[in-house]
Design a protein around this nucleic acid. Structure first.
Length: 473
RNA sequence: GUCCCCAUCGUCUAGCCCGGCCUAGGACACCUCCCUUUCACGGAGGAGACAGGGGUUCGAAUCCCCUUGGGGACGCCA
């Protein structure tokens, strides 16, 4: 059987981290079956039936977020709103079959029912007032909603691939609204009709939908359709242990991009948050497709931990292609230092990237660390660097300069040998020689190897920077 | 409040389904040391958990029950 999954966000904001993980799992599950089963499809459906809260900007943000994460979907995205007529037809059919009815309750009556239910400790809110009432008693001038006639007795069972068998007494569930008074379909109806029509075989979504799944199961039954297989994955919690949601500080994936995270790192982190494959931590996307299955999804909620994401990101940066990293850094530096970059910036960054990338855990950090390569002379210096360039440092640099200049081949090994010889002659350790040089060349006390830096900068620029330092610039 | 779900180091987790191989493994973070021109990287160690209580059993992190704690859902939102 071909596996068909979907990601169905509502466009009321960016793609947040929880949604991203849900999308990832759906995508991975489909890809896995594409490779090993009878095929797999992953669809995107925009749940935009709430016209007041849905925006095109949010839809675009969701597309952009998924694209950045590398989660491609099959076919064109489906707009739930555009399928309203189909949803309505399903409700009309249930009405005609006597499986749904018109309810004329006013909002005030419903509020009263809700309060009464809560006071009496009942979960079931709507009391079924219009369930068997004669439609001729309908009040004039009131547009009714259509409610489903849900079973009053027995129980509804879901065999969830993650949660196991979950059962609820039907007495707990009231008659859900299918069509609103204005004739528009509700989410509950739309989801069921869409999932059925799209041929969704596996509904993989957040745990917060588990109770909806009971109602939806009843709806599938009423419509005479087979239910899809459900897999309710645990939610991601914030550091405080509560559901991570948009109105609770969850950031959009683009915020992680802006903070300097790589999409492959986020994928790896999100994958591992709630799913495991033994002790494996670093898992490539290809390997994830190979291994992913719902049976290894954990049942308990997980807290989002940026520190671990950061560590993973450091790993992927070290693995990343130098040209790609150079582009990412250039983009940031150009924005941060308009007109101040040396014309050799790109070239130097690329040459120095190997030394740079193993010292950074995010692209932001990498860019920070790379500034000295990109900026035109003179290089700004930190306070600590300034201290390295005091009287002693300056004297050392003055003596070292001609030694370096005398080095025939301007390469890191030769330069290091020259510096070593210089140090030994003066009874200095290499570190004592390197620090002032580092301060002069980078304006900092922390950097990649100073000899590698000299190599990248070249003779002229290196000596120029030494001269700047000696001139007190 | 009612219903549903969950419960292993600070965090993510392996182990649990099919009890013994678990003096509970890995990763992140933390501490120490090594490497070393700084910082990282890398390497070697360390500290750190089966929520509590009952059962079942020769034996329980693993099975059952209760308690406690946490979470989610209870809309003419999605």
């Amino acid at each position: 059987m071909t596996v068909v999954t979907r990601f169905a966000p509502s466009p009321t904001g960016y793609l947040h981290i929880g949604g991203a993980r849900t999308a990832l799992y759906n995508w991975l599950f489909a890809k896995h079956h594409q490779r090993h089963g009878a095929g797999g499809k992953f669809y995107l459906r925009i749940e935009d039936t709430d016209r007041a809260r849905s925006t095109q900007a949010a839809v675009d943000a969701i597309y952009a977020g998924l694209e950045w994460l590398g989660l491609d979907w099959d076919g064109d995205p489906i707009s739930q709103f555009e399928r309203a007529d189909t949803h309505r037809a399903a409700a009309e059919r249930l009405l005609a079959e006597g499986k749904a009815y018109k309810c004329y309750c006013s909002p005030e009556e419903l509020t009263a029912m809700r309060e009464a239910a809560r006071k009496e400790g009942r979960q079931r809110m709507y009391d079924g007032t219009w369930r068997d009432r004669d439609p001729s008693e309908a009040p004039a001038g009131v547009d009714p909603v259509i409610r489903m006639k849900a079973p009053l007795e027995g129980e509804t069972v879901i065999d969830d691939l993650v949660q196991g068998r979950v059962t609820v007494a039907n007495a707990q569930l009231d008659d859900m609204v299918l069509l609103r008074a204005d004739g528009t379909p509700t989410y509950m109806l739309a989801v069921v009709v869409d999932d059925h029509d799209m041929g969704i075989t596996h509904v993989i979504r957040g745990d917060d939908h588990l109770t909806n799944a009971f109602r939806q199961t009843q709806l599938y039954l009423a419509l005479g359709w087979d239910t899809p297989t459900f897999a309710h994955i645990p939610l991601i919690h914030g550091p405080d242990g509560a559901k991570l949601s948009k109105r609770h500080g969850a950031l959009g994936v683009e915020a992680y991009r802006d903070d300097g995270f790589l999409p492959e790192a986020l994928r790896n982190y999100l994958l591992r948050l709630g799913w495991s494959h033994g002790d494996d931590e670093i898992i490539s996307t290809d390997q994830a497709i190979e291994w992913f299955g719902l049976e290894n999804v954990g049942k308990s909620a997980a807290r989002f931990d940026v520190t671990k994401l950061t560590s993973l990101n450091g790993h992927y940066i070290r693995e990343a292609d130098n040209a790609r990293l150079t582009d990412l850094v250039m983009e940031r530096l150009q924005a941060a230092y308009p007109g101040r970059l040396a014309k050799e910036a790109q070239d130097r960054l690329f040459k120095g990237m190997t030394g740079l990338k193993e010292r950074a855990k995010t692209i932001s950090e990498l860019s920070e660390n790379a500034i000295f390569y990109a900026l035109q002379r003179p290089i700004p210096k930190t306070e600590k660097a300034q201290q390295q360039l005091g009287a002693d440092g300056a004297a050392l640099l003055r003596d070292l300069r001609p030694v370096l200049d005398a080095t025939e081949t301007w390469r890191d090994e030769a330069l290091m040998a020259a510096a070593k010889g210089f140090g030994e002659a003066g009874g200095l350790k290499l570190g004592a020689v390197a620090q002032p040089v580092r301060a002069a060349l980078t304006g900092s006390t922390v950097s990649p190897s100073v000899f590698e830096i000299m190599d990248v900068l070249g003779r002229e620029e290196t000596l120029g920077r030494l001269d700047d330092a000696l001139a007190g610039l």
